[in-house]
Amino acid sequence: DTISAGNVVGLAMAMTAEGVHDFGLRFGDIEAYLGVVEDIAFRRGIGAELAEGARKLARKYGGEALALENKGLEYPGYDPRGSYGMALAYATSERGACHLRSFAVGAEAFGDIDPFTLEGKAQLVIRDQNHNSVKWTGIFCDFWAIEIADIAQLIAAATGHPYQADEMMTIGERIWNLGRLFNVREGFGRADDYPPPAIFERPLPAGAAAGKNLVREEYEAALDEYYRLRGWTPEGRPTPEKLKELGLGELA
């Protein structure tokens, strides 16, 4: 899609600029950019390699230090070095760097929450993830900033069951844990719940977040808190107690 395409072309440009591998793509060359997007679609020339995504491209040419992805899904436009909550949101998403699982940057950019700390972000991300699990399961539009109480009211009207907001959030938590169980079965664990190296090692060069990057020890603490609040083990596996609480005891 547009997010992954833009990200992987940007990676190719960065790898060219830093001498990792010359793809013939340079920042500011609009014509080359527009041409390679079509090459990706038809898998022509270097487009065939870029079509495989940022992770495979970086690993093939040794550009892992520049790649911005998690679990193989490319970062969208909300850089965690300017919105620390998004680091945890992307990394703990079951499908990789997806801003639709938790949009922590919304609270950080438009609320009174400090974007340059991880304190309190585990609670924020979990709340978003549970809420959005219900929202997407109900096939609600992303651009409708609907509250969980309103979702409960609408689903109650459609089904006849008197859903309440708290019950809907529990359903969202159940959905999230099911997704985690799928990933655990497929071999994912704590090691997959980290931002890429650039987020820790390469401060942003300009803008409002110039000079900012995450500190690995602080992220470790935030991830520990996230797992604890989720009722998961330190390795990120849902505990039997949590699964029983959610009515998923048979999957423990």
Rank of each mutant, 00 (worst) to 15 (best):
T2Y: 13
T2C: 13
S4N: 14
A5D: 15
V8Y: 02
L11K: 11
A12V: 06
T16C: 08
A17T: 06
G19Y: 05
G19I: 03
F23A: 00
A32V: 01
A32E: 12
L34H: 10
V36C: 06
V37K: 10
R43D: 08
R43S: 13
E52I: 03
G53E: 01
L57P: 02
R59E: 14
E64I: 00
E64A: 03
E64L: 06
A65G: 09
L66P: 05
N70I: 12
N70W: 01
Y75W: 14
R81Y: 10
S83D: 09
S83G: 13
Y84A: 06
G85W: 06
A87S: 08
A89M: 03
A91M: 04
A91I: 02
A91K: 00
G96Q: 04
G96L: 07
H99I: 14
F103W: 11
F103A: 10
A107D: 08
E108D: 04
E108G: 00
G111S: 11
D112K: 15
I113T: 10
P115V: 04
A122Y: 11
A122F: 01
Q123N: 14
L124Q: 13
V125C: 02
V125A: 04
R127E: 14
H131M: 09
N132V: 06
G138E: 15
G138C: 15
F140D: 04
F143P: 01
W144V: 13
I146P: 01
I146W: 06
Q153C: 12
A157G: 07
T159P: 05
H161D: 12
P162T: 06
P162K: 02
Y163W: 15
Q164R: 14
A165C: 06
E167K: 10
E167T: 13
M168W: 01
M168R: 07
M169R: 10
T170H: 11
I171W: 13
E173R: 14
R174D: 09
L178D: 00
F182S: 12
G187F: 02
R190E: 11
A191W: 06
I199L: 09
E201L: 14
R202V: 13
L204F: 02
A210N: 00
Y219D: 05
E220V: 10
L223P: 01
D224V: 05
E225G: 03
Y226L: 12
P234A: 07
R237M: 12
P240Y: 07
K242V: 11
G247R: 08
A252D: 03
